[in-house]
Simulated scan of single mutants.
Amino acid sequence: MPTPQEHLSEAAKLIRSFNDVSRTITTGWQHPDDAHAALGSLTAIAQMLPRAIEQSVRPITHAHSNGQLLTSEGSPSESVRALRAFLDEAIQHAADLTKIVAALHIETNDLKSPPAQAGADSGR
């Protein structure tokens, strides 16, 4: 069974692949509906980010609560306090990103290509 890190690594690879293939307008990636669908998927990804960010630091907080966390500078408790502050900020920014991407998705809802002429691409 893949580890949590392996799942995140795979997710990053898939988003990198999307970035590569979506650079060029081509079949399957040429209509407003294509963008709308992509923004729907990005909204779903963004909605999952706060929880993923929070869960990504659980091994650290678990080790700290069990007295098993060491640091080369300062105390582990100071480091965990700083980590939690950054974590709270990251979660808030992820929530803000979700709202903005969802707004993009909604804004594209009524955008369509003109009807196709006979013998042309479907135009969706």
Rank of each mutant, 00 (worst) to 15 (best):
M1V: 12
E54H: 08
I60A: 01
L87S: 03
A11S: 08
D96V: 06
A38T: 10
D110L: 08
A116T: 09
I25G: 08
H64K: 00
A103Q: 13
E10R: 15
K99Y: 00
H36L: 04
R58A: 15
E78V: 05
A94T: 03
N19L: 13
V101D: 05
N109D: 14
Q55S: 08
L14M: 14
Q117M: 12
L42T: 00
M1L: 10
A85G: 02
V21A: 06
I100G: 01
L70M: 01
H36Q: 11
P76M: 02
Q55D: 12
H93N: 11
Q47S: 12
I25Y: 11
D110G: 11
Q92Y: 12
I100K: 09
A63Y: 03
G74F: 00
V57D: 06
T26I: 07
L49F: 00
A116Y: 07
P76E: 02
G74V: 06
Q68F: 04
T27F: 04
L8W: 14
I15A: 15
M1H: 14
Q92H: 07
E89T: 08
A38S: 09
P32I: 10
T71L: 04
Q92L: 13
A37T: 14
D121A: 15
V57N: 04
E54D: 09
D121C: 09
G119S: 06
A44R: 01
E89A: 09
N109H: 15
Q5C: 10
A103C: 06
S41F: 15
A94F: 02
T26P: 00
A118L: 14
S17G: 10
H31N: 02
L70G: 01
G119Q: 06
S79C: 10
A44G: 06
L87V: 02
L70V: 00
R51G: 07
S41I: 11
R81S: 11
A95I: 04
G40C: 03
I53H: 02
L83V: 03
L49W: 02
P4D: 12
L111R: 14
R16H: 12
E10T: 13
